[in-house]
Each structure stands twice: as C-alpha cells, then as structure tokens.
Amino acid sequence: MNNVNHSSVDYLVQLSCGYWKSCILFAAVEFDIFTLINNGKHTRKDISQSIRSDERATEMLLNALVSLELLTKQADRYDNSQISELYLVKGKPYYQGDFIHHLHNIMENWTMIRETIETGKAVSLKDLPEEVDPHDLRDFITAMHAIASVKTEILCSKICLQEAKTLLDLAGGPGTYAIACAKANPQLRAVVFDLEHVVKLTREFIQAAGVEDRVITQAGNCLEDSFGENAYDAILASNLLHIYNPENNRKILKKCHDALRSGGQVIIHEFVLDETRTHPQFAALFSLNMLIGTQEGASYSESEYRAWLENTGFKDIKRIDLVSNSSLIIGKKIL
C-alpha cells in the first residue's frame, strides 16, 4: 500500500480553494466591514443591520475574516486586525480597498483562462465596447493610485532626481509617482503623459495634492505620439511595458531616448522575471494576467529589458529591487 503524503494533498486542496479567501476579502471590502468596525460597529447584529444582511450569514463571514487574521474576536466583539486598520479602513492614507475592488472586477476574466490558452488571445477583450466606460475608468485609475501610494516612498528613495529639473511620467495614470517625486524634489517639474480620457482624472489627483504649479498633464498615445526631443532629465515608465510586445517596447524606449537630454535617465518600474521565467511567483502569475487582460502583454526578464535598453542607445544599465515584488531597471543617455 502506497503511503499518502497528506501535506502534498493538502497543498493541492489549499491551491484549489484559494479563491475562497479572495471572495471573502472581496465581499468584506464591498460591504465596507472594516470601516464599519472602525466606526464602532463591533457585533454581528450591529454589522448585519448596517449592511442589511442576514445575521447568521454575517457571523460566518466575520468568523472567516478572523480565520484570515483580518479581524480579531473576543466573546461577541469583532475588531480590526492591525493590517486591516492600516489598509482596509476607508479614508486612511494607504487604503487598499480600491485596488482590491479592481482585482474583484477582473476575477471573471480569469474564468476564461482555458479558452485564452487555447486561442492565445485575450477572450475577455472580445466583446468590449469601443468607448471606455467612465465609471470603469475611474475605478481603475483610483485602484492604480491606491497601490502606487504604498510604493511612492521606497521608489523615490531609490532614484536620484536631485539634479533633475524635468520628469516625464509616461502613461502615469493618476500621477501618483510624479506627484511624490515632485514633493520629494522641490526643484523638479513633472509632466504626466497619458490618454486624453485618463488625464482628465489625473488633474483631479494633482489638484488634490496641491502641486498644480509643478505637475501638469499632457494627452497622448505612447505608441503613436512623440515625447519630444532633448526635453527631460528623467523619464519614468512604471507598469507600462508589460502591456506591450517586445517590438513596441523597443519603440517606446527609443522615443524615451530621443526625449531625454544627455545624461538623462529612463526608469523602468516592473515585475521582473528571472531567466527561467518561472520566478518570482507574482511576476509569473502576473504574466498570465496580462495574457488574459491585454492584446499583447506579458512579464519580462531582466535580460530582455537590458537588451531593449542597449538596442535603443542606453548605457550604464542597473537594476534596483524594491521590497514589493517589483524592480527598477535604469538606463542613462550618454552621448
């Protein structure tokens, strides 16, 4: 009789039901349970009345959140755990509910993974309307601001902009990084470059940050439009190149080289694969996410980024790993 490795079987079970945990978190965020608890609703009765839900079912959800260490429980009282208090209470500086909501929104795309693998095409894009839904766009840009907000301090500390006077934040979305870089470097002026319907929202984030005098927007398409000639001391391409294929990425980086002054730097911020293309795990999974959700996107390795930079004229290329699954790959324009 063969011995059963129960830990291996349990690993497969945990892997198979992993989406249970995601769905519990998604429901809690949609109900805004963590904010309710922060505001004084601590019992199953109080919470179920606040969200107009079944009390027994609400208790099950709350107990599951305790098991996930997102809540604590003493007798009949529920409280937020430290992580929930910091990141899941609406109105807190690093609130991540908007980003979690975005991941909830794209969950259905992952149910199409088999057909996507069979065809090699993003099935989720097949029936999308030509016009971008304003509500969906605001959800996405707000989500990108949420996840960027927890990375701004470490990113700004790792890039040297003390001598830079101009920064281009390419496809910068909410402009979170441009705003943070401008605040950290008083001499810096920044331009957030993105599509016309995006920069309308970007201006709201710039205004809220009170940096309208030093951070502006420019509408454009990074594949179709020029970024200028010898115009910038630094260009940030954060979470952009994973959307495109290698040919288009070389095209974007060539335009970055043209737009930089001599001595300027391009700063790529991405989830970088190792040379086996299997690790880190998040980058490998994210590559599938790009297959499912974009026309030609993927995660790429350091050697690929280096080759594109070298082919487009960049020198002194270096990599800096951040603490949050992502890395910076920086190249300089040296004439």
Rank of each mutant, 00 (worst) to 15 (best):
C181L: 07
L288D: 06
S22T: 11
L137G: 02
I106H: 05
G331L: 03
I141E: 01
A164T: 09
H101D: 12
N5K: 15
T152R: 10
A146R: 01
R114V: 14
Y177K: 05
G228E: 00
H42W: 03
E118Q: 11
L170H: 06
S50G: 15
D316I: 05
Q207H: 09
Q96Y: 08
E55P: 11
E302K: 10
K318N: 05
Q295P: 04
V66L: 00
L223M: 04
S7Q: 15
K333P: 00
L70A: 14
S67D: 14
G313N: 04
D139V: 02
G175L: 00
A28Q: 01
L71E: 10
G40I: 03
K41T: 03
N109C: 11
L236N: 04
L170Q: 07
K183E: 10
R261W: 08
V198L: 10
S157W: 13
E302F: 07
K126D: 12
R306V: 06
F193G: 01
L62R: 03
Y300P: 00
N239C: 15
D79P: 06
G97P: 03
P93V: 00
D213Q: 09
M144E: 06
H42Y: 04
K121P: 06
E118A: 13
D194I: 14
E296I: 07
G120Q: 03
F31L: 15
L240D: 07
D54T: 11
E224W: 07
V211W: 04
D46F: 10
S326H: 05
G228C: 01
L70T: 09
R203E: 11
S157M: 06
M112N: 13
I235S: 08
V192K: 04
M144C: 09
F99M: 11
G175V: 01
K73H: 12
L285V: 13
L167M: 09
A283Q: 02
E130H: 13
H104M: 15
S8Q: 15
E118T: 13
K92M: 10
E212F: 12
F227T: 05
T166I: 13
E85N: 06
I252N: 02
K158W: 09
P134D: 04
T202V: 05
N105M: 08
A27N: 07
S149A: 08
L88F: 06
G91S: 00
S299I: 08
I216N: 04
G91M: 00
S324A: 10
R44P: 07
W20R: 14
L62P: 08
N3W: 14
L253P: 02
K126A: 14
I334M: 07
K41H: 08
A146T: 02
E270F: 05
W308N: 08
S326D: 04
Q281D: 05
T35H: 07
G18I: 15
A27Y: 09
I235N: 02
T152F: 10
E275T: 07
E118M: 11
A75R: 15
A283W: 01
K315S: 11
G313I: 06
V66A: 01
N289K: 06
N2K: 14
D274S: 07
I179R: 01
D274E: 09
G264F: 12
F314L: 13
A298M: 05
R306P: 04
E270N: 11
W20I: 15
L288T: 06
D32W: 11
I320A: 02
